[in-house]
């Protein structure tokens, strides 16, 4: 579906279930937020399932990503503000499910706009997200190497060979295509935002809503141990560790992520 936020068109996947359908009126609104250089389709293993299991699922393309109007926004705080405006556009408080950069955005939004964010499910994040200088260098000049590096690093070792949960699909091939087809410069800007953001611990400490962290034990981009300061700052967070996931558990262990979402959402639904 398309909807406007601050006068700019946003593309979102809703599992092909219109969120204004009478049958889903009042159901929790779940906004899924992708990571650096990605788009809404990283949630394809969750969006349609959520839409048919008692929620209004809205997997958004961030500004300037996928099919959403640009420009890209210049900081995690600006993106968090944009998420609060998504909440306004959708007509109520939202549960945010965020991956990597999307997790930072959700965290910052929940800290800054607590009345607009009902809860958080965050995956593929650490207290900080330093970016390998070679990745940043390649992204800065739109070198396809950046997509290659990301596609290789973001999955656990099992995914070097497969197998993809969807028959016939290639996980690294899909990740590479999403990054390669993102508009010029978008990945480079996203990576800079991730590297520059230093507010995760403060945001976590300020959080008042329920949070679940879904962490891959084989995550090489944001290693499990890098999330520990966040876990401690959150205090009350539910932590789900996935044994075979790397940085992209929503693709690598989709069933476990769906289960974590169900546990979280149906315990915290408004």
């Amino acid at each position: 579906m398309r909807f406007d936020v601050a006068g700019r068109s946003v593309l979102a996947a809703t599992g092909a279930v219109p969120i204004d359908r009478p049958e889903v009126a009042g159901a929790p609104i779940v906004v899924l937020v992708h990571g650096a250089g990605m788009d809404r389709t990283v949630w394809s293993q969750q969006t349609r399932w959520l839409a048919h299991h008692g929620t209004r699922a809205v997997a958004v393309d961030l500004p300037g990503h996928g099919g959403s109007d640009g420009p890209v926004l210049g900081s995690i705080f600006e993106l968090a503000t944009w998420i609060s405006e998504v909440s306004d556009a959708l007509g109520g408080a939202i549960h945010v499910v965020g991956h990597s950069m999307g997790a930072f955005i959700g965290l910052e939004a929940a800290a800054e706009f607590p009345n607009k964010i009902s809860s958080l499910v965050l995956m593929g994040l650490g207290a900080a997200m330093p970016v390998h200088p070679d990745l940043q260098t390649a992204a800065d000049v739109d070198d396809p190497l950046a997509a290659d590096l990301m596609a290789g690093w973001m999955h656990g070792p099992d995914q070097k060979f497969g197998t993809h949960p969807t028959p016939g699909m290639s996980m690294t091939g899909t990740a590479r295509a999403i990054i390669e087809t993102s508009p010029s410069g978008v990945l480079a800007e996203d990576l800079k935002l991730c590297a520059e953001y230093d507010g995760a611990i403060a945001a976590a400490a300020a959080l008042t809503c329920q949070a679940t962290l879904v962490l891959g034990r084989l995550d090489r981009m944001t290693p499990r141990k890098s999330a520990q300061p966040l876990v401690e700052a959150l205090g009350h967070a539910n932590v789900v560790e996935l044994a075979t996931s790397g940085h992209a558990p929503m693709s690598e262990e989709p069933e476990a992520v769906r289960a974590a979402l169900a546990d979280h959402l149906f315990a915290t639904a408004d």
């Binding site: 497969g162 197998t163 993809h164 969807t166 028959p167 016939g168 699909m169 290639s170 690294t172 091939g173 899909t174 590479r176 295509a177």
Partner: peptide, 16 residues
């Protein structure tokens, strides 16, 4: 069949 599909997608550099 899915193994063959994913293998050929990998060798060709496709998404699937």
């Amino acid at each position: 069949v899915a193994v063959l599909e994913e293998r050929l997608a990998s060798l060709e550099g496709g998404v699937g």
